[in-house]
Design a protein around this nucleic acid. Structure first.
Length: 588
RNA sequence: GGGGUCAUAGCUCAGUUGGUUAGAGCGCCUGCCUGUCACGCAGGAGGUCGCGAGUUCGAGUCUCGUUGACCCCGCCA
């Protein structure tokens, strides 16, 4: 087949090209056959150009034009002509011209697509995923992936300009016990042994610091075998960053510079720096989340001091067990019906709350089922502390501190939705959350786990409590939050093998286990490890937010479904017995 | 592991209290049509109502199970 290489793309031709002979290659987006004249929208990723088949202009091509169907791939030779008066299409950039077809070659025919390409976003996602290669032809997906590509470019340029090195790290590595479930890869050469795919290149980038590559970054795939969400895939992309001889401030400054550049180059908008910061503990108390959405206020208030001497059982228990009593005002919601309140109560109960106390604020005080258990002072205390006024609705949740705050945080988001507090034109809200707890107690296994990861440095003035009161130690760890989404997280690391040992002790990891699992890192730290720290971005989430999408699947070319399968190539799949045999694996 | 929403034509959906032959728009096919850009007009084809049981004289509709998609909780250092 003769191949006529294009002289222009389908988004390129303008009035100044009028009179030129051109060749276009592309897909038939739409065909409008008026009998005497045929219009075809020819599409490629650059745009759409209208090509015209007219018998007076060329009988032969007009005949061939009527055979065209949606998604045929063609090469068109023709002449650019100004569109006749009043037939311009101002909604597309090429809308002032036509290409009059001299010759058309069908490079490939196409079956009728299972769904219309142009409107694929209205099609059920399972069909889009089954025919992903068609879905990706849609304007939306092309736009998203083009934007994503631009973002890679911005990131690489930024770090390059700042003297960083991009260094690849292994995808086949050692399985580590902490953190997410590993994807395992069986070894053929080493019978019974397994590699793991990296949850992140964490240990490698720290070793690169030991090696003296003081500014490292990588755009890298990571793998976690955990359940999926709209913003979580089993394989995802990080912008991984690590720096030596730095403190938290240096990391913040470097990352803020990146965010400024990303906003400028992908959204053509400015953001304010320095980015606001908030202590983890404040974030939990005021917003019930370690990734608060600050596009709206709706602040929670701790009411423990109001009920110091309360006889109300629920509050008394909360205070005695060092729990929390947290309140929230839903402005103007005093007219919520009993039924609406039941729905909300059910909402918090499903999140694990023991119950929800609600109160209507009236001119006379508080109207609520539990009002009889409270003194007048307490009632006034609630109103004063929450700043409530008649017509408002109040919620109170009490119980174990972190759990109750977190549930109230979900209720805060729910009420924001109900009250429509996030307007489409709301400015993006960036926030550093700092000073995370170093450790997290797990009731099931009765031990501490690292909240970030086991290489995170404790605050230096709190190191002494590592043995006496480990739960109270905070970390030099930080997250970057955008509109209530965690988009990056990092920490200053431990660079001293002695402190690392104490950390493993606090985690209840034995000397032997630490040696087996992380010996290589601990050893490396004995040979002159510089102080270092870093951060990693969830690149897919960032792209999702920049694209204004609700799911990272819309910024990933070939994503998995929420049950971690690929509908297009039907993975995962069974493999031949021979393959298993070679790997010494037997399915139980 | 748990909770929720959904599944009817190629696509998006409607389908009453369980009742005759399951509909619409778009798409597709055929014909007509020289300025359309959601072209228009006329005609036509197209259905295992996700799958499997059950209740019933009768099930797209009710019950149970199951599969799949999506959202959330747990989980995600």
């Amino acid at each position: 087949m003769k191949f006529n290489r294009r002289t222009h793309t389908c988004g390129e031709l303008r009035e100044e090209n009028i009179g030129e002979k051109v060749i276009l290659n592309g897909w038939v987006d739409n065909r409008r056959d008026l009998g005497g004249v045929i219009f075809v929208d020819l599409r490629d990723r650059y745009g759409i150009t209208q090509i015209v088949f007219e018998p007076h202009y060329n009988v032969e091509s007009h005949k061939e034009g009527s055979a065209l169907r949606s998604e045929f791939v063609v090469a068109v030779e023709g002449t650019v002509r100004k569109r006749p008066d009043n037939t311009e299409n101002l909604s597309i950039p090429t809308g002032l011209i036509d290409v009059m077809v001299d010759k058309i070659i069908i490079l490939n025919e196409a079956k009728t697509p299972p769904f219309p390409i142009q409107k694929s976003e209205n099609v059920n996602e399972d069909i889009r995923l089954e025919y992903r290669y068609l879905d990706l032809r849609s304007e939306k997906m092309q736009k998203n992936l083009i934007m994503r590509s631009k973002m890679y470019n911005t990131v690489r340029n930024y770090f390059n300009d700042n003297g960083f090195l991009e260094i690849e790290t292994p995808y086949l590595m050692k399985s580590t016990p902490e953190g997410a479930r590993d994807f395992l890869v069986p070894s053929r050469i080493h019978r019974g042994k397994f590699y793991a795919l990296p949850q992140s290149p964490q240990t490698y980038k720290q070793l690169l610091m030991v090696s003296g590559f003081d500014k490292y970054f990588q755009i890298v795939k990571c793998f976690r075998d955990e359940d999926l969400r709209a913003d979580r895939q089993p394989e995802f992309t990080q912008i991984d960053i690590e720096m030596s001889f730095v403190d938290q401030e240096d990391i913040f400054q470097m990352v803020e510079g990146l965010m400024v550049k990303l906003y400028k180059e992908t959204k053509n908008s400015e953001i304010e720096t320095p980015i606001r910061r908030m202590d983890f503990h404040e974030a939990m108390e005021k917003y019930g989340s370690d990734k608060p959405d600050l596009r709206f206020n709706l602040e929670m208030k701790t009411l423990n001091h109001v009920f110091e001497n309360s006889e109300f059982r629920v509050f008394k228990d909360a205070i005695e067990s060092k729990g929390i009593i947290s309140g929230l005002v839903a402005e103007g919601c005093g007219d919520y019906t009993r039924n609406q309140l039941d729905v909300i109560t059910n909402f918090v109960k499903q999140l694990g709350a023991g119950g929800l106390i609600w109160m209507r604020v009236t001119e006379d005080g508080l109207d609520a089922p539990v009002a009889k258990f409270m003194t007048d002072d307490e009632k006034q205390g609630i109103i004063d502390n929450l700043g409530a006024k008649p017509g408002d609705l109040l919620f109170i949740i009490s119980g174990p501190k972190m759990k109750s705050l977190s549930i109230m945080g979900f209720l805060r988001l729910e009420m924001a939705k109900r009250l429509n507090l996030i307007k489409p034109d709301t400015k993006p809200s960036l926030l550093w959350v700092t000073n995370f707890p170093l450790l997290e107690w797990d009731e099931d296994t009765k031990r501490f786990y690292a909240m970030h990861h086991p290489f995170t440095s404790p605050n230096l003035d709190e190191v002494d409590k590592l043995e006496t009161d480990p739960g109270s130690v905070n970390a030099r760890a930080y997250d970057l939050v955008l509109n209530g989404n965690e988009i990056a997280g990092g920490s200053i690391r431990i660079h001293n093998s002695e402190l690392q040992s104490r950390m493993f002790d606090a985690l209840g990891v034995s000397k032997e286990e630490a040696e087996t699992k992380f010996g290589f890192l601990m050893n490396a730290f004995k040979y002159g490890a510089p102080p270092h720290g870093g951060i990693a971005f969830g690149f897919d989430r960032l792209a999702m937010l920049f694209a204004g999408e609700d799911s990272i699947r819309d910024v990933i070319a070939f994503p998995k479904t929420s049950s971690a399968s690929s509908l297009m190539d039907d993975s995962p799949s069974f493999v031949d017995e021979e393959q298993l045999k070679e790997l010494f694996i037997k399915i139980r």
